[in-house]
Design a protein around this nucleic acid. Structure first.
Length: 365
DNA sequence: CAGATTTGACCCAA
DNA sequence: TTGGGTCAAATCTG
């Protein structure tokens, strides 16, 4: 636990420092002819940084009374697990960090259904992989019970309504709505309302075997993954918060504008060789660059990444990271690729559709 | 049989 | 009046 607290403090400080640095860069950019895109990247970085810092603050404080029954494992604490998956587009309501206020809100909501609408509300967008057999967005760690489904006017897909499984037994009034995106069926918009006050539903104490039909919260897991589910959960969380910054690099000419990649969550699988072979690529591209990695879930001492050029296909660059998380697990993931003829990103090669793997530590690219 | 899901009905705010 | 959110009985599942 101590390691977790120490880690959280360091991460919090580093995130705030990152935010300050990005703000300074933005100020410098404002006085120059920098492109709006580059400024937007900096703004996103700043917002990301403060979002994460706030999340760390939120989850390092004693929750009410949701997670007081079972202590949070150090590994879980170290991941700074948010109540729901953090995404570029979503963050918990910043007004809701006051646990006492949240508790009062929950209490009031219990008394009058009208006041439920006053509950804090925030929305996350979660992308799922069509390649990995996922039926829906990843499990957010809570136990949800579906209580309704509605066809929404103008939406292709119905909206599902979930409430906390422990509503009746523990008066936990957290709810969520899951709406599949019309534009991209692999994207789910998840709207959370209210904080969990249950003792059993916390993300650090995953549900004991919930059914696998729930649209919004289940992952198909192989047997080998169940054995070490905790590390894999951590990996998923670490990926979610991982960012690759490519500005000011020694190989900075590879990607001409500063880029920030936000990692979607993805499942684990033995993808490394399959990914390359299915693309007709050799896995020994020429290393020609490196980048800084920034994530609250990465060990700074072991972070590294590589860029590879690939000559066998119209892929001008394959950004590939090889990393090690705080649990000591090696991770490899393709995070982006660019079509050399059109100079446009190749979405199918992005980090999402090519899931991460725990690679052989002895394997070299 | 207990708990979860489905689905039509109901409520209510806009 | 309409559409979104919730309820609750029926049904399903392990």
């Amino acid at each position: 636990m101590e390691g977790g607290s120490c880690y959280e403090e360091k991460t919090l400080i580093s995130e705030l420092i990152l935010g300050v640095n990005l703000a300074r860069q933005l100020r410098a950019h404002l006085s120059s002819d920098t492109s709006p895109e580059a400024r937007e990247v900096l703004i996103k970085g700043i917002l990301n940084s403060y979002d994460k810092a706030l999340l760390i603050l939120q989850w390092s404080e004693p929750p009410i009374p949701c997670q007081t029954v079972q202590p949070v494992p150090a590994s879980a604490a170290a991941t700074g697990i948010p109540e729901s998956p953090l995404s570029v587009n979503g963050s918990p309501n910043s007004n809701d960090f006051d646990g006492g206020l949240a508790a009062r809100e929950q209490f009031d909501a219990r008394e009058t259904p009208k006041k439920r609408k006053m509950l804090p509300k925030w929305t996350n967008q979660v992308k799922i992989s069509p390649d990995t057999g996922l039926e829906g967005p990843q499990d957010d760690g809570y136990n949800w019970r579906k209580y309704g489904q509605k066809d929404i006017l103008g939406a292709k897909f119905p909206r599902s309504y979930y409430r906390c499984t422990y509503r009746n037994t523990q008066n936990c009034w957290a709810t969520k709505q899951v709406q599949r995106s019309d534009d991209d069926p692999t994207v789910f918009e998840i709207t959370y309302r209210g904080k969990h006050t249950c003792a059993l539903g916390g993300p650090s104490t995953p549900a004991p075997a919930s059914p696998d039909k729930q649209e919004s919260s289940q992952i198909v897991r192989g047997s080998h993954q169940q054995q070490d589910q905790q590390p894999h959960d951590n990996l998923t969380r670490f990926r979610t918060g991982l960012r690759v910054e490519t500005d000011n690099l020694d190989g900075g000419n590879i990607i001409e504008t500063p880029c920030t990649f936000s990692f979607p969550s993805s499942s684990s699988g033995f993808l490394h060789h399959e990914a390359y072979s299915s693309l007709g690529l050799a896995s020994n591209g020429n290393h020609h660059g490196s980048s800084r990695l920034s994530s609250p879930f990465l060990s700074p001492s072991t972070t590294e990444s590589s860029y590879f050029s690939v000559s066998q296909c119209p892929v001008s660059e394959l950004v590939h990271i090889h990393n090690r998380d705080w649990c000591g697990y090696d991770i490899a993931e393709i995070v982006s690729a660019t079509n050399s003829s059109t100079n446009s990103p190749i979405p199918d090669l992005g980090g999402f559709s090519l899931a991460a793997v725990d690679i052989d530590p002895n394997f070299t690219f």
